[in-house]
Design a binder for these strands. Sequence first.
RNA 1: GGGCCGCUAGCUCAAUGGUAGAGCAGGGGCCUUUUAAGCCCUUGGUUAGAGGUUCGAGUCCUCUGUGGCUCACCA
Length: 552
Amino acid sequence: MIYCGRFLTPRREDARTQKTDGETSRSGCLRGSIPTARNVMREYTELERIRLEKLERLRANGIEPYPARVKRTHTAAEAIAQYSSVPALSGEAAHGSGPEIAATVCGRLRAVRTMGKATFAHIEDGTGRIQIYMRADEIGTDMLKTFGRDFDLGDFIQASGVLFRTKTGEITLRVRELTMLAKAVTPLPAAKEEIVDGQRVIHYAFSDTEQRYRQRYVDLAVNPEVRDEFRTRARIISAFRRFLDDRDFLEVETPILQPLYGGAAARPFTTHHRQLHQDLYLRISFELYLKRLLVGGYERVYEIGRDFRNEGVSFKHNPEFTMLEFYWAYADYNDVMNLTEQMVTYVADNVLGRRTITYDGHRIDLTPPWPRMTVREAIREHSGIDYADHPTGESLAAAMRAIGHNPETTIWGKLLDSLLGTNVEPKLIQPTFLMDYPRDISPLAKAKPGDPNTVERFEGFIGGMEVCNAFSELNDPLDQEQRFLEMGRAYDANDEEAHPMDEDYLRAMRYGMPPNGGFGLGIDRFTMLLTDKATIREVVLYPHLRKAEGEA
RNA sequence: GGGCCGCUAGCUCAAUGGUAGAGCAGGGGCCUUUUAAGCCCUUGGUUAGAGGUUCGAGUCCUCUGUGGCUCACCA
């Protein structure tokens, strides 16, 4: 199999020539270079060559395999719906009678059952499948022969005719005219399916994980349930948007290319602007840009978009992921917690129509209120360590070693994160808010009144995953500057996770920032929960993969 | 980076160290209400690659490649 890319010539003679010249396809694809139409040749498989012959035969018979015009009158669903109002007749003479409803449907040919001088087939469009029926005495012997010989599973076709009900009761299009819309050169993986007791049973499914992600279009084409999952994802995003819009939050867009990254503890991707001779970072969060807008006078802003973090990949980490953040003036983290409960149940109600979900075998109830406990209590409960007894990194590391951890750092905040991640997070299956985080790991959150070492921050956990993170935002410019300095000292000078000093952000805050509550939620992880997917790759259309064989 | 598992026909999968197979897809036939249509015939393989052990390797060993899971890393 050659992965070099696009073809230059569809002629089978040429394809054969290429094959004997074994070097052509490989050497045309220079290692380290991006393939272009110039340096790439294509090698066809035997199945593809057979289809290319059919394509040429169609052309030779005056049938354009890629016509420019389409004339659809009904989707599959519309055709079926319209004919459903025609009462089903019973008795031997029933099938074939009834009113004539003309329809032209388009779609991909998914199943063919040839019976000599008649053929049944199913075509599938974006709304579903519809059966078509062709008789030699109606569309002509030649056309039926052409269909049988030169049309293949996977081709897009257009069928015009009248609707009727077969003797088994299936609404079917009796075809008078058949048009090729787009010949498929490469066969789709052969998957068959049947309905048994209302359940779809799939035979010979296309199931190789890597191929499914790498060629998502094939995955989508042959696995309709995958199409459904991404529709669900879209509905989740639109429900979040609707919820916030309805509450007067303004949707905004902030820079993805940033001269300075911030708002989270993560390594960034670096890029470069050629003309300006300027290094730029892909954003790791929207936070600092969104809060600047509160200085500008907007009271409620939100953004849904992509963050990029140059970290490891795992079942819950993709290098780029979709984040929702909002900032709400004159609110604090208690208000945000309440709004979070409302928002999550709103999305569940609107997308699923229920508030209980099943995730990884667990039955999870999203109905508010969710239990709220402090981070200190949670860590004490799940690890036996009270971090108040261990004010230094050395002391905390020692306590963690005593319970089986093997910490590689003595940075107190990192240790605490690790403790949370391994001992607490996996246990939080039912929705839970952990609140009141140590100031050390929360440089952008406001301290709790009367407790300068603790900040008003919470994270929401569902299904053992951190789903959201929020706080009463720090709006004291002098305190903020101090926090940046502390972070700079706490981390190694070369540690890219340390928050860089963002002078412009401090300047903005010095102009006056209203007190506000901020919030961030990982859309991908939330979608995993609502669709019961064990890995983020199932809810990202094109997840990051290692480079494929043969690619540079 | 470590550990575990995998890589056999286009797809899904078989094959005690002893002739590389099946279903579907593909090709050729038959069949005018089928629906995983059916029936007959049939093409298709450097078993990821290289080396080794053996009379004999898909199978055992080594190395390489590649992917998945997992640990580490990572809000």
